[in-house]
């Protein structure tokens, strides 16, 4: 499922998406990592808010409101919500279509693991774009291991 944040596009595994929410209130939690700056309420829990903006060199999310869309994602046995500007049409992609990270290596180097990258025509009449496919399990594992 491709999503947009500013002028950037990234993709997440569509089967991991539990729900797409509109804008929500969130609360900043001190001393967390820049990509996980706080939490929002979802189904009786406080789930972590994943903000890719610092890795994309975009302005970080400001409390108290998230961006326009929030994708709630299952990550291993946990749940996080990635806050983005737009959700694009879900695409089917074969495993072969996901190439090793090359053009989007810069994102990996900024602490966001990726499974690979896809060439997609994101919107009608637009040129094909190469977008990274996030590896949120690896991100969560990295998040846990660096404590």
């Amino acid at each position: 499922m491709p999503v947009a944040l500013g002028a950037h596009h990234v993709a997440v595994e569509a089967l991991a998406v539990l729900e797409i929410l509109g804008p929500r209130e969130w609360v900043r939690i001190p001393n967390t990592r820049p990509l996980l700056p706080g939490a929002l309420a979802w189904r009786g829990r406080a789930i972590g808010v994943l903000d890719l903006a610092p890795a994309l060199r975009l302005p970080a999310l400001e409390a108290p409101n998230t961006r326009g869309r929030n994708a709630v994602l299952r990550v291993d046995d946990d749940v996080v919500v990635i806050t983005i500007d737009r959700v694009l049409e879900v695409r089917r992609a074969s495993v072969d279509a996901i190439k090793p990270v090359h053009a989007t290596r810069w994102l990996v180097e900024r602490g966001v693991p990726c499974r690979g990258e896809l060439e997609l025509e994101l919107e009608r009449d637009l040129d094909t774009d190469v977008i990274p496919v996030l590896d949120l399990e690896a991100w969560a594992s990295m998040h846990r291991s660096v404590r």
Binding site: A46, G48, V75, D78, R147
Partner: peptide, 12 residues
């Protein structure tokens, strides 16, 4: 609201 594990288990 209980914090999810990614947040709760962070010793910081």
């Amino acid at each position: 609201l209980a914090l999810s594990d990614l947040l709760r288990l962070d010793p910081r």
